[in-house]
Nucleic acid binder design. Structure first.
Lengths: 226, 226
DNA sequence: CATTAACGATAGTAATACTATTATAATTGC
DNA sequence: GCAATTATAATAGTATTACTATCGTTAATG
């Protein structure tokens, strides 16, 4: 499953020069993930990244207008990658309940395995998404960027899962609200577990977050007919 | 209810000089809310705020170390204020279900009324909280600040409502996860409605968000015995 | 082999996020 | 009522950030 060599296509509004098209570009992606993971998005600068990859900042600017756009690129990459995972896991599964369950698992379980083939470390990237991606769309430029399609990958994921919800109950009024609540919620809970435990319920069980959000979703829906 | 002239006490780790103790301090709070609301937290600087209140930036630095601390102060103020509202609305209500319902309403309904007595415009402040407060705790300094008690007000609100949940079902394992999901979720959905409608279900009904999250919570809990 | 594109090296600018100093005005303590 | 303290204004200055511009060299392509 992991070694399909899929091509992750990113909206061209998110880069000036496609980082996937050159050695340097891939190095920028690869190392920016490490650096953002390490020092956080606020402290991250193109100058520091330049030092790390031993290229001048001006070269990085040839690929990305600024670090905000780079974050949107990484986020987009992540959701496209998640979408592939979801498609893979749900194809040929007849039961909508089962497809929904598997989708929620992908959306709420930690990413633990790096495929090591692409230049992207998905484990580190997912950590960045959990704690930093929100900064990508809580900005004054969100409407403008939304028009350009910068958030399409995320929206596609939400839509895809919402459609399974609607397949189970076509009268349910809030499928998108439900799924975006699950996604954002799971990210928050992971963050809270590590940093603000009073806002969650830390337990020994590994997948309490997945359990909680799975129950949350199915609480809204009718049981599967057997 | 609104005109109680309550004193909002904020953890002293969040300021160098208490802004509540002087005219200038109150002006800083009052105008920073307007300015952050208007131009967003990233574009907000002490220099611009200084220009607005016609004081030099150095004077503002006497009250707050930086704009991040100011945001934490505002957030703390907001949650303390919300807690007062919640206490007020739930006191003397015997039914735990009813208290929970009213609490969720406070947490998910938009703030529409500014009490005009204090120097804080709660309507604008709530908008800031919805779209910017998350930036206050998604930082590398979160652990350190958490130790100093910078997030106590938020935690108190979550705990208070979680306790009602536990009162209704003492075996329920995730009361804090449930309530923080509701709070953060409602904020997100409000933001999505305005900026990323594909991630939510915008409807004509005013309080669809409140309805959704109320149902979400009560789905997990047993019905009230009558 | 010539042309073009990509990259590295270097320099420079405006804005940001502060810190420091000193003078003046307002409060308070006695 | 005056001295002492404290708060604020005015001004200056620094390091860092977030870029933009120029130019020479190398690598890829036709």
């Amino acid at each position: 499953m992991k070694n399909l060599h899929i091509q992750i296509d990113i909206n061209s509004a998110l880069y000036s020069k496609n980082p996937n098209s050159s050695e340097l570009g891939r190095k920028i992606i690869n190392k920016s993930i490490e650096l953002i993971y390490e020092i956080g998005f606020e402290a991250f600068t193109f100058k520091k990244l330049g030092a790390l990859i031993q290229s001048p900042e001006s070269s990085i600017y040839r690929y990305f207008d600024n670090k905000h756009t780079l974050l949107l690129y990484l986020t987009s990459w992540y959701w496209t990658w998640v979408e592939y995972q979801m498609v893979f896991v749900t194809t040929n599964v007849v039961s909508a309940h089962e497809r929904l369950k598997k989708s929620i698992e992908i959306l709420t379980k930690p990413v633990v395995e790096d495929n090591e083939i692409s230049y992207v470390n998905e484990v580190l990237l997912s950590e960045i998404i959990f704690s930093e991606s929100i900064k990508g769309y809580h900005t004054k430029s969100v409407d403008e960027e939304n028009k350009k399609g910068c958030f399409k990958a995320y929206k596609r994921v939400v839509r895809r899962v919402s459609e399974i919800v609607s397949e189970i109950d076509e009268d349910f009024k809030y499928p998108h609200m439900l799924i975006s609540t699950v996604i954002e919620g799971a990210h928050h809970q992971k963050y809270f577990t590590e940093h603000l435990p009073a806002l969650t319920d830390v337990s020994n069980e590994e997948d309490s977050i997945t359990q909680f959000y799975t129950k949350l979703v199915f609480n809204f829906l009718p049981r599967e007919k057997t």
